[in-house]
Write a protein that binds this DNA or RNA. Structure first.
Length: 989
RNA sequence: GCUGAAGUGGUGGAAUUGGUAGACACGUUGGACUUAAAAUCCAAUGUCCAUUAGGACGUACGGGUUCAAGUCCCGUCUUCAGUACCA
């Protein structure tokens, strides 16, 4: 009986499901291990072969850890709120919940076919009210918390209120808005309830603020910074503009330093940590305030606050530049400059963010006519505006030191501003000198003769002394906007009394998403939830009621925005810990304390600055408030690379006649084009330049052109992507297959000796390129074990690589070979005999290699190791039952179905998944050592391979023997003996 | 520009601490089996020279350290990813 993977795989998938083989328990003698995948968004397109890559890797690791005696938690779920389902709902009127459920079913079916060891009993769906109850609850807890800088953690807002009523806010050291007024305890008590709430809002970790946001008109919603790529939306690529709106925000900036420091405690790749560090963007320097001395400012002196990382260069400042959007600009501009300034502001406002980014070389700016006073020299410094200063970084103002900063230098050169030199040593006649070393300061008053470090210390001290600045650390990380004007997301548990937000208590959650008739924003621009009729909060009944009941005494309007996609994904890893039979907490303390954090997290690196930062933020918050016992969610993180598609391209001939371009029905085989020395990069064929090629192509075209006298002047190749599933390994495609598609139905195909070939190009796997390969067809043709092995075999996990179905025959043949080696007439072909030395050597070599590979996540090389082992067993005619048993355990994480089947045939009636991983014994690698003399540079050299576990004495005696040999050969005793234990001994004469 | 990763046959990729470069697989070529095809099996397959024996060259490029370098050091080039007037 041949290897019937279909029935074997079905049988074991059913078996695992029926026996709940992979159900995790929350109590065990064994040590725990938590392996997690980034849960998928269930899109309508289903899975392609790229999706399971990370899941297969994590599954191998999870199965391996079970063999190694760990109690493994390996769950899966769905990030089921999101834009595509909503867009689909807008187009079709279909409720997103329905499409989402259908998509989840498809995903589940596809995942089940691959034979993952997920514990599905803990499945999570972010759009499930039982789940988002707790997302809403976390939101209310963020609202009810503030960040206490002294204890360096979040505390309940009640603590803050206590502080306010006992001593006011003058001594409160909080991370809060900058515009908080100072008040005493007495004043606090005298404030109206509404005023108190407004003040508290400035302290809460989530707060309503009128902020400038990234508005995407096409999607009708705001986007977070990480949802924007190159100035357009991440989803759909629509343009994004900046707009002021009242939005919920998350005070993630309070955690900037801890998010940065926490990176040192976790095992992530350097590149990923670096991305997060860049995103947080810490810079250490000082803030300096400059008094404005313009006539307009006389009665009411303004001062400009700047941030600098180079306070040591303060005496080199020859002008100040403000961002055009800076609030002081209009206030300080002199009369005769106001026209120019207004024109400039208008011009920059018109330019989109994208234009401004693309055009970084052009220097532009305008003088305001105002001057500032240098804090020490009291010299007047001109104030300019320029769009190279960004309004949303630092204070939106810089002190320009042309000799020490290239942009300031260029600006000064361009507008003929002074470039005073304060550096002793460097030459600044051509460029600025921005290094922090290699100079001493000059022309700098009390800083003269100092180096960078000393000068910074001194100048900060002096600035503090005159109360015009202090040392300051600045972060690029902005507070995260948390409102979305969408339907398909978590509703906020918030209602409004007199315009002030109120939280709905835990016991009344979840606030379920109401039904609406249409999923679009309203005509007045309100979010889709404004269309819901039953959308008001009755504070007496503690229930959602019809809008008509709003009376603002007991029934109030509810929030119309929903939460962003990252809300539900920021804590889902805790939800898996509980088996969710009750819903009293988001996970019980026992479960949280048992599983603690995720030991291994595998997912794509597109989440480097989004999900992975937000989850860390929420976990730190939950930890501060003692809701969870850990400070970091993911101990170790691996980014799997993307699997790319290999598109298939067919070339259609286009031609130019009478100066206009025509499309023909002629398609030419790519091999033919290559024979004509016509690459794809060279797709214009003029009569004059390449007459031979031209006339050849023209002869094909004549088959299509009705008017044979037409004068063709130029021929082009138009690339068309075709379904890759029609193309075989040799890049050939059957014309009948092509003709099934409408556009090719009456095409004329120019073959190369009857064969039509396509060109291939590697690009992202996507429906629109027709290059999607579906795992279902692979499983149907080759089986899940082949798919699993092949996905690993493709290359290193973390690397992006193109998919090529042709190669799968290699691993598939291997499985067939293995099956044939051990199964004969449906009988297992082994006996209970002593294994030979060779058998054991092969086995233990494999144990060692596979164990190392899994620990290092180099799954690709262990697939090769298995192939080599089976080849060796085959030549050794290995029939030992004990050897096969160990080998099956080794391979079972990779190819679990075939391993289970053979395990059963060996007479075991339990699943192989709980068997202990075989122990490596170095003794079995002992065998005859081989040695060979090599002549090198006229000297004799011996290299001899020694057994790994050889004793020191044995090595010495072995070396002595060879020293003698070498001395005989060469006539001289060896000069140097290099002994690498367990490896190779070099004797150099 | 900055940060990070990487450059090895026709292709994907091996090579542990510096120790026989190209494992394993795909592809290609030849052969066996077959009426034929598929499947399977066997052999060859880095480049060049040579009838063979054998030899020379070879891990992006140029240097260096070493008995020994894909691996370490210095310099150059290229590719990919992230990020960007960040003061």
């Amino acid at each position: 009986m041949s290897y019937d993977f279909r029935s074997i795989e079905k049988k074991w998938q059913d078996h695992w499901e029926k026996h709940q083989t992979f159900k995790a328990v929350n109590h065990s003698e064994k040590p725990k291990y938590y392996v997690l995948d980034m849960f998928p968004y269930p899109s309508g397109a289903g899975l392609h072969v790229g999706h399971p890559l990370g899941y297969i890797a994590s599954d191998i690791y999870a199965r391996y850890k079970r063999h190694k005696g760990f109690n493994v938690l390996h769950p899966q779920g769905y990030d089921s709120f999101g834009l595509p389902a909503e867009q689909y709902a807008i187009q079709t009127g279909q409720h997103p919940a329905i499409t989402t459920t259908t998509n989840i079913e498809t995903y589940r079916k596809q995942l089940d076919q691959i034979g993952f060891s997920f514990d599905w009993s803990r499945e999570v769906r972010t759009s499930d009210p039982k789940y988002y109850k707790w997302t809403q609850w976390i939101f209310t807890e963020l609202f009810n918390s503030w960040y206490h800088k002294t204890t360096d953690k979040a505390e309940p807002i009640s603590n803050l209120i206590k502080l306010f009523s006992s001593e006011g806010n003058t001594n409160v050291n909080a991370h809060c808005d900058e515009d908080v007024p100072l008040f005493s305890a007495k004043e606090w008590a005298a404030f109206s309830e509404n005023t108190q709430q407004q003040i508290l809002l400035k302290y809460r970790l989530t707060y309503l603020a009128n902020t400038e946001v990234n508005w995407c008109p096409a999607l009708g919603t705001v986007l977070a910074n990480d949802e924007i790529v190159n100035g357009t939306s991440e989803r759909g690529g629509h343009p994004v503009i900046r707009k002021k709106m009242t939005q919920w925000s998350m005070r993630i900036s309070a955690y900037a330093e801890r998010l940065l420091q926490g990176l040192n405690t976790i095992d992530w790749t350097d590149s990923l940590k670096e991305s997060q560090r860049n995103w947080i963007g810490k810079s250490v320097g000082a803030s300096v305030s400059f008094k404005v001395v313009s006539a307009a400012a006389q009665s009411n002196p303004y001062s400009i606050e700047v941030f600098t990382t180079r306070p040591d260069t303060l005496f080199g400042a020859s002008f100040i530049t403000l961002a055009p959007e800076h609030e002081l600009v209009t206030k300080i501009t002199s009369q005769n400059q106001s026209k120019a300034v207004n024109a400039y502001i208008e011009a920059t406002a018109k330019r989109s963010e994208r234009d401004r980014m693309a055009d970084v070389k052009t220097i532009s700016g305008v003088f305001t006519g105002a001057y500032a006073e240098h804090p020490f020299t009291k010299q007047a410094i001109p104030i300019w505006i320029g769009d190279y200063v960004l309004a949303n970084y630092g204070t939106g103002a810089v002190m320009a030191v042309p000799c020490g900063d290239q942009r300031d230098y260029d600006f000064a050169k361009h507008f003929n501003i002074d470039i005073p030199n304060i550096f002793e040593g460097p030459d600044i006649s051509q460029t600025a000198y921005s290094d922090k070393t290699g100079f001493t300061l000059t022309n700098s008053d009390f800083l003269n003769g100092m180096t960078y470090k000393k000068a910074v210390k001194r100048v900060v001290h002096e600035l503090e002394h005159i109360n015009q600045g202090q040392g300051k650390t600045n972060y690029r990380l902005r507070d995260a906007v948390f409102s979305r004007q969408r339907y398909w997301g978590e509703p906020f548990p918030v209602y409004y009394v007199n315009g002030m937000p109120q939280m709905i208590a835990k016991e009344h959650l979840p606030i379920k998403l109401p039904d609406v008739e249409k999923y679009l924003p309203t005509e007045t621009g309100d979010p889709p939830l404004a269309r819901a009729n039953t959308w008001a909060w009755d504070t007496k009944a503690h229930a959602v009621v019809h809008k008509d009941n709003i009376n603002n005494t007991s029934v109030y309007p509810l929030e119309l925005n929903t939460m962003p996609g990252w809300a539900g994904s920021s804590w889902y890893f805790f939800r898996y810990m509980e088996d969710c039979t009750h819903n009293e907490a988001f996970a019980s303390n026992e479960a949280l304390n048992y599983w603690k954090n995720v030991d291994l997290y595998i997912g794509g690196n597109e989440h480097a600055t989004g999900h992975l930062l937000y989850s860390r933020f929420w976990v730190k918050f939950l930890n501060d408030r003692a809701f969870v016992p850990v400070d970091e969610p993911f101990k170790k993180l691996i980014n799997q690379g993307m699997i790319l598609g290999t598109s298939a391209i067919v070339y259609r001939l286009h031609y130019t006649a009478s100066n206009s371009n025509h499309s023909s029905r002629v398609y030419v085989s790519f091999s033919k084009l290559k024979n004509l020395a016509l690459g794809t990069d060279q797709n214009h064929v003029c009569k004059a330049k390449q007459p031979n090629v031209f006339y050849e192509l023209e002869s094909y075209l004549k088959q299509d052109v009705t008017d044979k006298t037409i004068d063709i002047t130029d021929i082009q190749l138009a690339p068309l992507r075709v379904n890759v599933n029609y193309v075989n390994a040799a890049n050939e495609i059957a014309i009948e297959n092509l003709k099934q598609e409408h556009q090719f139905r009456d095409g004329i195909f120019i073959t190369d000796h009857g064969v039509f070939t396509v060109n291939r190009e590697v690009e992202k796997m996507s429906k629109r390129w027709f290059n999607v390969v579906n795992p279902d067809t692979i499983v149907a043709n080759y089986g899940a074990d082949s798919l699993r092995l092949y996905e690993m075999f493709l290359g290193p996990l973390e690397q992006s690589k193109p998919w090529n179905t042709a190669g799968i025959t290699g691993v598939h043949n291997f499985l067939k070979k293995m099956w044939k080696l051990y199964v004969n007439q449906n009988q297992i072909n082994v006996i209970d005999c002593e294994p030979t030395k060779d058998n054991l050597k092969t086995l233990h070599k494999t144990i060692k290699k596979v164990e190392e590979d899994i620990e290092n996540f180099s799954f690709n090389t262990s697939v090769s190791t298995f192939m080599i082992a089976v080849n060796e067993f085959s030549t050794q005619q290995c029939t030992s039952k004990a050897v096969l048993e160990d080998f099956l355990i080794l391979i079972s994480p990779y190819a679990p179905h075939i391993a289970e089947e053979l395990w059963l045939k060996l007479g075991h009636n339990t699943s192989i998944s709980t068997e202990a991983f075989p122990k490596f014994d170095a003794n079995h690698l002992v065998e005859s050592s081989k040695n060979y003399p090599i002549s090198f540079n006229g000297k004799m050299r011996f290299t001899l391979e020694l057994p790994i576990n050889m004793s020191k004495e044995a090595i010495e005696s072995e070396v002595m023997t060879h020293q003698k040999t070498i001395a005989q050969l060469d006539g001289k005793p060896p000069k140097k003996v290099i002994v690498i234990p367990g490896k190779i001994v070099n004797i150099v004469s």
